[in-house]
């Protein structure tokens, strides 16, 4: 970790971090961010939950807005870190600021900050009902939680040699999914076809997820990725699309606030119930609210050329014209 610029612990026990013109400091309650043209304060809770996703997802697709001011834009290899870039008032006042970094360089600083600022009893991936508060002076660390391996199947979960199904031993059923049937499909391969004849219970798999708002790949058809996730409370980031993404609500209900990607102006409120399918256009940002833990199938097109075709107007920001 020689490239990470960090200070000695401050009075509250947390290190300051800096990279480029950005400086990060945490105290008992807040993350304080400064850059050459301004400064910003966020709740440590919101900041750490967003930082956790940004780190775990390798900056994800498109924009990860930590809130209405601060965030990152992924260019897949390099990444912009910005303040005020997708905020109309900051843009008009010309106070917005963006710096570009090689992805591994920024990631290293983010990882070190996440590890140092997360106390032993806080898990940024967990529902707030299932973890302690992140506040107070530094008390231990939770490295195993903040460095969870990202689950990504090569073909499909449950195929021999691929990601394994979840069991009581490692993944107990979540309290809010206690009623989800746990039966697995009946699979009868003929001799020699054990690797190709495969199935698993997606619902049982998701009922055992110990994280929230963390899409992980369960099946792959070329660049088409099924990235289901379990959701409870609020998506800790506001996701700005660089391509269309799709939602299939598998259980329960989520309400989505949809805003213009660049200005943040409200565009729609989408309520999704079990069986509902909706596209999120490539020019929006969105944040979801899930009153009860729910199963959401996020469907992504991982074609690396897609964002550029959309930004150049060669492909539509809308999924379908009708």
């Amino acid at each position: 970790m020689t490239d990470v610029k960090a200070t000695k612990p401050n009075l509250q026990g947390y290190k300051d971090f800096s990279i480029g013109g950005f400086h990060f400091r945490r105290d008992e309650f807040f993350a304080h961010i400064t850059w050459p043209t301004g400064k910003h304060v966020m709740s440590a809770d919101t900041f750490l939950r967003a930082l956790q996703r940004d780190v775990a997802w390798d900056f994800f697709y498109g924009t990860v807005n930590f809130d209405h001011v601060f965030g990152t834009v992924n260019h897949y290899g390099n990444v912009d870190m910005f303040a005020g870039r997708f905020n109309d008032a900051y843009r008009k006042a010309e106070l917005d600021h963006t710096e570009n970094f090689e992805s591994p360089v920024l990631k290293q600083t983010f990882e070190a900050m996440l590890d140092d600022w997360t106390n032993a009893s806080f898990d940024p991936f967990a529902s707030p009902a299932e973890t302690d508060k992140p506040f107070g002076q530094k008390k231990g660390s939770n490295t195993s939680a903040v460095t969870r391996r990202r689950v990504a199947a090569a073909r499909m979960v449950g195929v021999p040699g691929d990601e394994k199904i979840r069991t009581d031993k490692t993944h107990p059923i979540n309290r809010m999914f206690a009623d989800v049937p746990q039966d697995e499909p009946e699979v009868y391969p003929e001799p020699g076809f054990e690797k190709d004849v495969a199935a698993f219970s997606l619902f049982a798999y998701l009922s055992r997820s110990d994280v929230t708002w963390n899409p992980s790949v369960v099946s792959i058809c070329k660049a088409s990725l099924y990235c289901p996730t379990t959701e409870e409370y609020i998506l800790p980031i506001v996701h700005g699309n660089d391509r269309v993404d799709w939602f299939i609500q598998l259980s329960d209900e989520i309400v989505w606030d949809v805003q213009d990607r660049d200005s943040g102006a409200p565009r729609a409120k989408v309520t999704m119930k079990a069986g509902d399918v909706a596209a999120m256009p490539a020019d929006i940002r969105h944040q979801g609210y899930s009153p009860k833990r729910s199963m959401l199938l996020v469907w992504e097109n991982a074609d690396p050329g897609l964002p550029e075709r959309i930004s150049k107007g060669l492909a539509s920001v809308h999924a379908v014209q009708f």
């Binding site: 299939i248 609500q249 209900e253 949809v258 102006a265 409200p266 565009r267 729609a268 409120k269 989408v270 309520t271 999704m272 119930k273 079990a274 069986g275 509902d276 399918v277 909706a278 596209a279 999120m280 256009p281 809308h318 999924a319 379908v320 009708f322």
Partner: peptide, 23 residues
């Protein structure tokens, strides 16, 4: 099944290509 819906503030509902699988 129950179907959710879209409250439009400044957009076209068609942009969300919203359907229900059971329907």
């Amino acid at each position: 099944y129950e179907k959710g819906g879209i409250e439009i503030i400044n957009d076209d509902p068609k942009h969300y290509v919203f359907s229900n699988i059971f329907e």
